[in-house]
Design a protein around this nucleic acid. Structure first.
Lengths: 237, 237
DNA sequence: GGATAAACGGAGCTACTTTCTCCACTTGCA
DNA sequence: TGCAAGTGGAGAAAGTAGCTCCGTTTATCC
């Protein structure tokens, strides 16, 4: 199950086990906030261990990413199955989208795993082969019941999720629930017919997104206040 | 108007003028395909001139970007005004979104200018101050006429455009019109009430988006076949 | 409590990228 | 024909990310 060297040879020393946990915890935090762009150096820093220790435990980033997101990916597959248990087919579909998206929007790392093509490819393939058929069933049922428009197909859903989570990740710090607004609009567009719009949640502050984009692009380069701190440190030429 | 040194001193030599045009044309192509991540070296290559020439004409990337996209940005502002001339307020709004998005989805550079916070900031600020009020009027009219749901505000629109263009740019090579599908769904969600869904255009091939993502992330690193070409050129160690 | 293999930390090496400069050479034009 | 204007592109400068190496520390076993 675990993709590293634990089980094969003699057991890890107690301190090594402790550090391994610290690294996983740190990776969870760092990847969630900064996405998969985060370096193993950053994770080592967050974990309070040296980089060497990280690389000894996880030979490369892919192994660490796989170890971390195995569960989250599995969880999404499970959501698709659970959604089918809902009595109302439309409610089931909506619930699935909301749950899946709330995970991806609050965790930039998870979103990157789902979107990107550089990490954990096989993890995704296996997840996809479980999610697709379940989603397919959800969709067919909602269409059969006359809720979901009949001109959408299974492939549309990952695409719509991608669009919404691209916003969700950008605004996760400043307006963590903003994405729900646009999911609601999309869902109102997916329903076959309705008399009135579904009440929108949240509210988009005018410059909020501009600010969020600025913050997220700044964040992506270096962590927040590093430049100011440096300026204080190195005086003179 | 032009942000570089043309008008101030004595006129440019004829060959310099020619090169300047070549550079602008090359930049238009390269930025459109690869986005603003493209380096001035790439543009020089495409233009068939040396990097030095590019840097002599355009002191830095920001000046070149501003020179190139001034018109495109202006054009979008003009669209918002023209849309108000449509008799039907809903049609006007829809037309504006379609036109604005078709520009951003077919030109990754333009999308980057609109989204990113690293280039042409003042260009965007001036554009925004023209677009926002016009869009505001479009929205109010469509709401007043009972087409557009009343719980959306002006700030929602740039956000929705961002979500859709994020898809549009990724699939611009493999399925250039795919984004229209999701715009249609969103618009069906924005309308106050309707009996049936609007017919969707296009069709999402199952693995198309996965493929597009792979292509675009590969594209982002190096241009397509460069590695293979290099291998042929330099034989031996 | 001492021996020893395991684990640790983090400086620093490698490899790569991007922006931009510099200067020996070429060319348009008066 | 002379020379300022223009050119090309190697390479300097400044980064970044990934990973290794090795002197030091520490858990564990006897």
């Amino acid at each position: 199950m675990t993709t590293d060297v634990v089980s094969s040879m003699r057991p890890l020393r107690a301190d090594a086990v402790r550090n391994r946990e610290k690294i996983l915890a740190a990776a969870a935090t760092v990847f969630a906030n900064r996405g998969l762009d985060a370096t193993l150096d950053e994770i080592a820093l967050e974990a309070g261990v040296g980089v060497g220790t990280v690389y000894r435990r996880f030979p490369d980033k892919d192994v660490l990413v796989a170890a971390l997101f195995e569960n989250s990916i599995d969880e999404i597959a499970t959501l698709a199955l659970s959604a089918y248990e809902s009595e109302n087919s439309w409610e089931g579909l909506v619930w699935f989208m909301r749950e899946a998206l709330s995970r991806q929007c609050s965790n930039k790392g998870l979103r990157d795993v789902v979107i990107s093509t550089t990490y954990a490819e096989q993890l995704k393939d296996s997840a996809k082969s479980r999610i697709s058929p379940a989603l397919q069933k959800l969709i067919e049922r909602a269409q059969h019941d006359g809720y979901l428009r009949t001109d959408v197909v299974e492939a549309d859903f990952p695409i719509m999720e991608m669009m919404i989570s691209s916003l969700g990740c950008v605004t996760s710090q400043l307006a963590p629930d903003l994405w729900r607004r646009y999911l609601t609009i999309m869902l109102d567009g997916l329903v076959v017919s309705r008399d009135a719009p579904t009440q929108l949640e949240g509210f988009p502050n005018g410059d909020l997104v501009a600010e969020a984009l600025r913050a997220s692009s700044r964040h992506a380069r270096r962590s927040e206040g590093s430049k100011e701190l440096l300026r204080d440190d190195c005086q003179g030429s």
